[in-house]
Design a protein around this nucleic acid. Structure first.
Lengths: 150, 150
DNA sequence: CAGAAACGTTGGCTTCACCAACGTTGGTGG
DNA sequence: CCACCAACGTTGGTGAAGCCAACGTTTCTG
């Protein structure tokens, strides 16, 4: 989809939802290219990042914090346990829950992936000045707060 | 993914690629909700919009302009011809090509979908002033130009 | 005129986002 | 106390979207 990039229809090109979609798609390509080196995907990173930041949590909690469906958390946690990055243990205080915790390898991987993500941001935002990056971040944050804080 | 929206990890919440992803995801939800009334999806709209704007075109051309893979254009055009919104005819000037043209019904549908899209933009950008909307549009446009003009 | 390139098409793959349903466990109101 | 409802993990499935490889046909080029 790259090489020859003729004019998209103006009707699309100037539409914010289209711009968001395309920018996110492009960011996604950069991100997954970065993650490929770790042999992990987006869901895995979100979970590792959440655990690295806030410590052990139940799967439902992780799902809420990472905007991942409960059922998808199951599969991703399975992957992560399979790689020894995470441990799943029943919560003694509430037997409905599993407590997910980072292993040391998992904490390491979380760090490495965070580095990768940081590098990608620089790549992604290359054309923008630091003030503009802040602008963009603020605008997007307000958009999201409005549409989810409700 | 909605109701309770506790704090996402700050490590994600402040990351531009995450913000883009989330904002685009949300925009996508609004857009597909709007398109559902037309019983069409994103690819269909892109193609109709391109045809409405620039007239008949080959499938490869449409794919390039709409950022849709050639193989996906085939399927989407199949759908659209099935609904009588579009006509596929061999190009007499180049027998490798098909020329895709809007029917009248297709032109009408393109208009209606454009209206839907416009309404969604208002919804999406509700929290932003008109100056801020321009800001956002400009920033995203520059991002895309940088990353595709190359 | 031979080889490279473009086109349409088939068939397949992966990621992400969702949904419905089930059995289990925990909390609550009558 | 117990019936009921909510939350949790899990299974299995759906669909949109973005890709890629390969093939036969047609066109362009060296």
């Amino acid at each position: 989809m790259d090489a020859t990039a003729p004019q998209s229809p103006a009707g699309l090109r100037t539409t914010p939802s289209w711009l968001l979609n395309q920018a996110a798609t492009h960011a996604g390509r950069l991100i997954s290219a970065g993650f490929a080196a770790h042999d992990l995907r987006g869901y895995h990173y979100r979970l590792l990042a959440a655990l690295a930041e806030s410590g052990p949590a139940s799967q439902a909690d992780l799902g809420r914090r990472c905007a991942i469906d409960r059922s998808d958390v199951v599969a991703a946690v399975n992957d992560l346990t399979g790689r020894g990055l995470v441990v799943r243990a029943p919560d003694p205080a509430d037997r409905r829950r599993n407590v997910i915790s980072l292993t040391e390898a998992g904490a390491d991987e979380a760090h490495r992936m965070a580095d990768t993500v940081a590098r990608v941001q620089d790549d992604l935002l290359a054309p923008l000045s630091s003030a503009e990056r802040d602008q963009l971040t603020r605008l997007l944050t307000r958009l999201l707060e409005h549409h989810s804080g409700h």
